[in-house]
Simulated scan of single mutants.
Amino acid sequence: MSPAERLAEIGRTLTACLIRMRVHQRLIDQRTWEQVQSILQKKPRLRASNKRAKTPAQLKGLLFGPEGAAFSPTHRRKGDGLHRYDVSQTVLKHGTG
């Protein structure tokens, strides 16, 4: 059982217990619950890679500097080649010094 499946099971069990105790009402309708669960059934890396596949910057949104600033994809051309790399937003805005 995957971690997502385990969490879903825990959520259903907890919800069932709370409903039996009449402590709370449903926060979302059943249809929304099922839609979310179907999304969570996909492996997290596949869900994320679908989003990243639309850009040549495969690491976009995954890299952050020690100060928490995101890294931005950039590139340079040398001869016939294209070299892609990521640079910290802090360096881009304020320089290295």
Rank of each mutant, 00 (worst) to 15 (best):
H75Y: 13
L46M: 08
S72A: 13
Q35H: 04
V87M: 13
A69H: 00
G11E: 14
L82G: 01
W33D: 02
D29F: 07
K51D: 13
R31D: 05
R45G: 01
V36C: 06
T96G: 06
D86H: 13
P56W: 14
Q30T: 14
L82V: 09
S49W: 09
E9D: 04
V23C: 09
M1R: 13
V23K: 04
F64Y: 10
R6I: 10
T90I: 02
L27N: 10
V23P: 00
S2Y: 12
T90F: 00
R84F: 12
A4D: 03
E9C: 04
L63Q: 04
L63C: 11
T90R: 00
T15E: 08
R26N: 14
L63K: 08
C17R: 13
Q30M: 08
T96N: 13
G68D: 07
K78L: 09
S49D: 13
R31A: 05
E9A: 07
R12L: 08
V91F: 00
K43Y: 08
D29P: 04
K54Q: 05
Q58L: 15
D80P: 03
K78D: 13
G95E: 01
G79K: 06
L27G: 03
A69M: 08
M1F: 07
I28P: 02
T74R: 05
K93W: 01
K42Q: 11
A48Q: 04
Q89T: 02
K51S: 15
L63E: 04
G79P: 14
F64L: 00
I19H: 10
S38M: 10
T55H: 12
